[in-house]
């Protein structure tokens, strides 16, 4: 498939997931409100007839994102079979591009971070979507009890680091790939991308942290 098309698919599906992640965080912040609100919200979602197409959509987006990423990553490493013995990136060399873009830890680890997020996603769905909600306080109880286990909390908190990195490059990158940016927006969008990525990551980290330290079941 044509390179730009693959990248466009990654951009669109990535932005789709980004929107979902924002909504998901907004919904899950209801955890702080207690079992009634949170369970009602959960009930509203699962009983909604749109949930199946939405979930299918997310799945399709995920597969497309992943498949494109796989191809792009493989092609990219094939494009330079012999690596440089010495390479100084522009930022260290002091010539960051005039547009303000440069290679970052986040941009160089999109594939690895993405794979970690995939494993986390599988764990996450298995634990909460298909977990046992029949105990006290329903889903709220399941979530909070799970987070009371410091190991699980630790995994959840740690998993948000790749999310922060992934989004801090991915958000701006997707907009650039779709050709939506004007040059004068570059610095702003780069910063926005990092803020958005880390705010979301921090938001998600709050949940296990709160459950572990403050919630009472």
């Amino acid at each position: 498939m044509v390179s730009i098309l693959k990248k466009a698919i990654m951009a669109v599906t990535g932005l789709g997931w980004f929107v979902y992640v924002v909504l998901h965080l907004a919904g899950n912040l209801l955890l702080f409100k207690g079992p009634e609100t949170y369970n009602a919200y959960s009930e509203f979602l699962v009983s909604n007839p749109l949930i199946i197409p939405a979930e299918l959509g997310l799945l399709v987006f995920l597969v497309a994102h992943l498949a494109s990423a796989w191809r792009v990553t493989r092609e990219n490493s094939a494009a330079r079979p012999q690596p440089y013995l010495e390479r100084v990136l522009s930022r260290r060399g002091g010539t960051t591009s005039a547009s303000g873009w440069f290679s970052t830890f986040a941009s160089r680890t999109m594939w690895y971070g993405g794979v970690l997020l995939l494993f986390f996603l599988i764990l996450h769905v298995w634990m909460f979507k298909y977990g046992d909600r029949s105990g006290a306080h329903g889903l709220w109880g399941l979530v909070v009890r799970s987070f009371k286990n410091p190991w699980i909390s630790a995994i959840y908190i740690a998993a948000m680091l790749p999310l922060g990195f992934h989004l801090s490059h991915g958000f701006a990158s997707a907009l650039q790939t779709l050709g939506l940016l004007k040059p004068r927006w570059y610095p702003g969008v780069r910063r926005l991308s990092q803020v958005v990525g880390w705010v979301l990551a921090a938001g998600f980290i709050l949940l296990p942290l709160w459950a572990l330290l403050f919630a009472e079941v």
């Binding site: 390179s3 522009s90 650039q176």
Partner: peptide, 13 residues
């Protein structure tokens, strides 16, 4: 056989 762009701006720099 060129690679894909991952928007890092090293080319411009």
């Amino acid at each position: 056989g060129f690679g894909n762009c991952t928007n890092e701006g090293e080319c411009e720099a």
